[in-house]
Simulated assay, not measured.
Amino acid sequence: MSETLLSVQDLRMHFPIHKGLLRRQVGAVKAVDGIDFEVLKGETLGLVGESGCGKSTTGRLVTRLLEPTGGKIVFEGQDITHMPQGRLRPLRRDMQMIFQDPYSSLNPRHTVGAIVGAPFRIQGIKTEQGTKKAVQDILELVGLNPEHYNRYPHEFSGGQRQRIGIARTLALKPKLIIADEPVSALDVSIQAQVVNLLEDLQNELDLTYVVIAHDLSVVRHISDRVAVMYLGKIVEIADRKSLYTSPMHPYTNALLSAVPVPDPKVRTERERIRLQGDVPSPINPPPACRFHTRCWKAQEICKTVEPPLEQLASGHRVACHFPENAPTVTPAPETITA
């Protein structure tokens, strides 16, 4: 059994809505509203869902770029939920984040050497052969030329800029990396290169990933387990094979039915599930099961009782009153006594 590196319990993030001259709070955007998951050391957890479901907010909460409204974040057995920034600074060596846009996350006024060397300077870390040599080694590790040390971000392509962001993330040899849509802003031809790079680095440096994405094909390629989010809640979490071959939550089935299939015969035979209506507002989410307003299997209980995220198969947890592909339990035969 692998040890748990990260544990999240009932994590919540509500952004207050203020109105009027006195800035009175009139509501809150419930971006993340009570989620639980664990990440084992050395594995890759994929976090998927529609835009606005709370994936990126979850990543920023885990790395403590945002202060949680409630819940608990435990990293390597240490509660970091409301840890002061002074105590949190040393821990940031072990937790890093790859941002979605490889250009806006890099300072255009700084050279590549200054960008990738910033973690050494901020953490006050000295290397045997100097920071410049360490930065050049990292650039070579991610597939860039060490001579790029004195160049600026605008001189690179999108894929190269993302590699610079990855190099900065790897500078202090972290244990956990949160990758927020690491390939969504890249050309399709470059996406495979970056995904393969992430996998190679994981094997070489013993990294643990939480990959946030909406591209289910990328998530299937890189993840060991996958968690599906909808409107601030995790509705299903399972290992990659189980989730893609036997999805249980109706929302997961709808997502997978939208994945493009290259085989025309399979594509015509497959049922395409089209969800009706728009995603409800996180300011006033539906009661009980949040998916019931768009679910074709919804019944009265879905509108009144919130389904718990419970295990229906080995390592497969689902929050649904009427799951699909659920294993059937054969009742034990009655014993007839004389």
Results as ranks from 00 to 15, higher is better:
Arg290Glu: 06
Pro286Val: 00
Val219Ser: 10
Val235Cys: 07
Phe291Glu: 04
Asp215Arg: 07
Ala258Lys: 09
Leu275Glu: 06
Glu300Val: 06
Pro260Arg: 12
Pro285His: 12
Cys302Met: 09
Ile301His: 06
Met229Phe: 12
Ile212Asp: 01
Pro282Ile: 11
Arg267Phe: 10
Ala254Asn: 10
Val219Cys: 08
His221Ala: 02
Val228His: 12
Val235Trp: 02
Pro286His: 12
Glu306Asn: 10
Val211Asp: 01
Lys265Ile: 12
Arg267His: 10
Leu255His: 03
Leu216Thr: 02
Lys297Gln: 14
His292Thr: 04
Asp215Leu: 09
Ala227Arg: 02
Arg317Phe: 14
Pro264Asn: 03
Phe322Ile: 06
Ala213Asp: 07
Gln202Arg: 15
Pro262Gln: 09
Val329Met: 12
Cys289Gly: 06
Lys265Arg: 15
Pro323Arg: 13
Leu256Lys: 10
Ser246Ile: 00
Val279Glu: 11
Leu255Thr: 00
Glu204Ala: 12
Val329Cys: 07
Ser257Gln: 08
Gln299Tyr: 01
Arg317Asn: 08
Phe322Ala: 10
Pro250Phe: 05
Thr328His: 15
Tyr251Ser: 05
Arg290Trp: 08
Thr208Trp: 12
Lys303Thr: 14
Glu310Gly: 00
Ala298His: 07
Ser246Val: 00
Gln299Cys: 02
His249Glu: 02
Ile212Arg: 03
His316Ser: 07
Glu306Val: 04
Val226Thr: 13
Ser217Tyr: 09
Pro260Ser: 11
Ala254Val: 05
Phe291Pro: 01
Leu275Ser: 03
Thr268Asp: 14
Ala298Arg: 08
Pro264Val: 00
Glu236Asp: 10
Pro282Leu: 11
His214Tyr: 11
Pro264Glu: 03
Arg272Cys: 00
Ser217Arg: 14
Arg274Phe: 13
Pro264Cys: 03
Thr245Pro: 00
Asn253Trp: 04
Arg270Tyr: 11
Asn284Tyr: 08
Val329Phe: 13
Tyr230Ser: 10
Val259Met: 05
Pro282Trp: 14
Thr245Ile: 00
Ile273Thr: 06
Ala213Pro: 06
Trp296Val: 07
Ala313Thr: 03
Gln299Asn: 13
Pro308Lys: 08
Pro287Phe: 13
Gly232Ile: 04
Gly232Val: 05
Lys241Asp: 14
Leu205Arg: 15
Cys302His: 09
Ala254Thr: 06
Leu231Thr: 05
Pro260Gln: 12
Asp239Ala: 05
Arg270Glu: 10
Lys233Pro: 01
Thr208Gly: 04
Ser223Asp: 01
Ile212Tyr: 10
Pro287Gln: 08
Val259Asp: 11
Ala298Ile: 07
Val235Phe: 06
